[in-house]
Amino acid sequence: MSTRPYPAPRKVLFFSQDGKLGDAVVNTAFVAALRARAPDCEIHATVAGATAAFWGQDARLARLWRVQRPGWLETVRTALALRRERYDYIVTWQRLRKEKSKLLLWLARPGRVIDLCGLDGGPPTHKVAACAAALEQMGLPGEAELAYDIGMPPCCPEIDRMFAPGREVVVVNLFAADAWRNIGAAQAAELLRGLGALAPQAALCLVCTDATAAAAGAVLAEAGGAAAGQVVNCQGNLPRLLRLCQRADLVISPDTALIHIASAYDTAVVGIYQNNGVKEVEWGPRSRLSARVLSDCPDSLDGFAVADVLAKAAALRAAYLD
């Protein structure tokens, strides 16, 4: 007789419609473990924005439900369609705040909602712990170490042509969704000059989007010839971003999706975080070779030391070049 307190998962839906690529990469640990521990389970997800493209390439998901700023009528229609799916479990990851999301969940009426709000009450843990907790609430083993597992091949011939085989590649990201997580222009130029001196033979790449391309170019120009490099625009090109992070030997970034993408490929990472004792724990890198640098402020990157970043980068390079 089964000792499970709840039925084994036959069909599961998880929420991923916040549009945050980094969160989606973290949640690949849940998808991979669920597929391994319940191979017959049918996995669905609600998606929006960047997560729609990300999960759309993942063959482990049977169906995606696009929830992109729906109106009330669309919310009800989607919820009733979800209700007909008869999910054993719906995983929301965090407490729902929007009334439309609450209504959608109530109308969907799953067998059980996976409640992870209790994780917020204790000391900070990495966000991947929520993946393990969700599995445990389904009666599946969750205590084993989980790993990110991106379900789409990082194929981009353009990136492969950009670098000669065997050449060291250092990828730097200066920009985040929130301005307070951006690296300022003066510190950015100092960082690029330092990297140029530290790894003069490496290909130095500055990642940007359409909105940050001009700023990235200006920083590269300010850094001067000692930091000869190139700007790589990954706007709307997920394969380019994935392959760049996989091809890189080292990624340096504030708390953004690049930290988690690089971790998924076990690329060496230096993450830069605000100094509040939480963010660097919850969203820290998970590569075998990784380091964290903290700012002077609890709510911004103000005051982080470029010298600390360069020292961490030098230590990681010594390890992967050994």
Rank of each mutant, 00 (worst) to 15 (best):
E99I: 15
G118A: 14
P110N: 04
P110T: 10
P110E: 03
R112Q: 14
K127D: 13
V113C: 02
W106Y: 08
A132F: 14
G118V: 13
T92Q: 15
A108Y: 07
C117H: 07
E136Y: 06
A108I: 09
I90T: 10
P110I: 09
A134I: 09
K100R: 15
R83E: 13
I114E: 02
I90S: 08
W93P: 03
G121L: 15
L116K: 06
Y87C: 13
L103W: 03
T92F: 10
R95E: 13
L119F: 13
Y89S: 06
L103H: 02
P123D: 15
L116Y: 12
A130N: 05
W93M: 04
G122S: 11
G122A: 10
R95F: 05
R84M: 08
I114D: 02
A130E: 06
E99P: 08
A130Y: 02
A130M: 01
C131A: 14
I90N: 01
P123H: 11
L107Y: 02
L107C: 05
H126G: 09
G122V: 00
A108E: 00
G122K: 06
G121I: 00
P110D: 06
Q94K: 12
C117W: 10
R97E: 12
K127S: 14
D88Q: 00
H126C: 09
R112G: 02
A108C: 12
R95V: 05
G118N: 09
Y89F: 14
T125W: 14
E136A: 15
R109N: 07
P123E: 13
A133Y: 01
G121V: 01
E136Q: 15
Y89I: 10
V128S: 10
K127P: 10
W93H: 04
E85T: 05
W93G: 00
R83F: 00
K98C: 08
T92Y: 09
L105R: 06
R95Y: 03
I114R: 00
Y89G: 07
E99W: 14
L103V: 14
E85S: 03
V128I: 15
Y89D: 01
S101K: 12
L135Y: 13
W106I: 01
C131H: 04
T92S: 14
G118L: 11
R95K: 14
G111D: 08
R95C: 08
T92D: 05
L119I: 06
H126V: 10
A132W: 11
E85Y: 02
R97M: 04
V128N: 03
Y89R: 05
L135I: 02
G122Y: 01
C131F: 08
L135F: 11
R83H: 13
H126R: 09
C117Q: 12
I90E: 03
D120Y: 12
R95A: 15
K127T: 15
V91P: 00
K98Y: 09
A130G: 06
A134R: 02
T125D: 15
L96N: 03
L135C: 06
G118H: 13
V113K: 06
I90H: 08
I90M: 13
I90D: 03
D88C: 04
D120Q: 14
K102R: 15
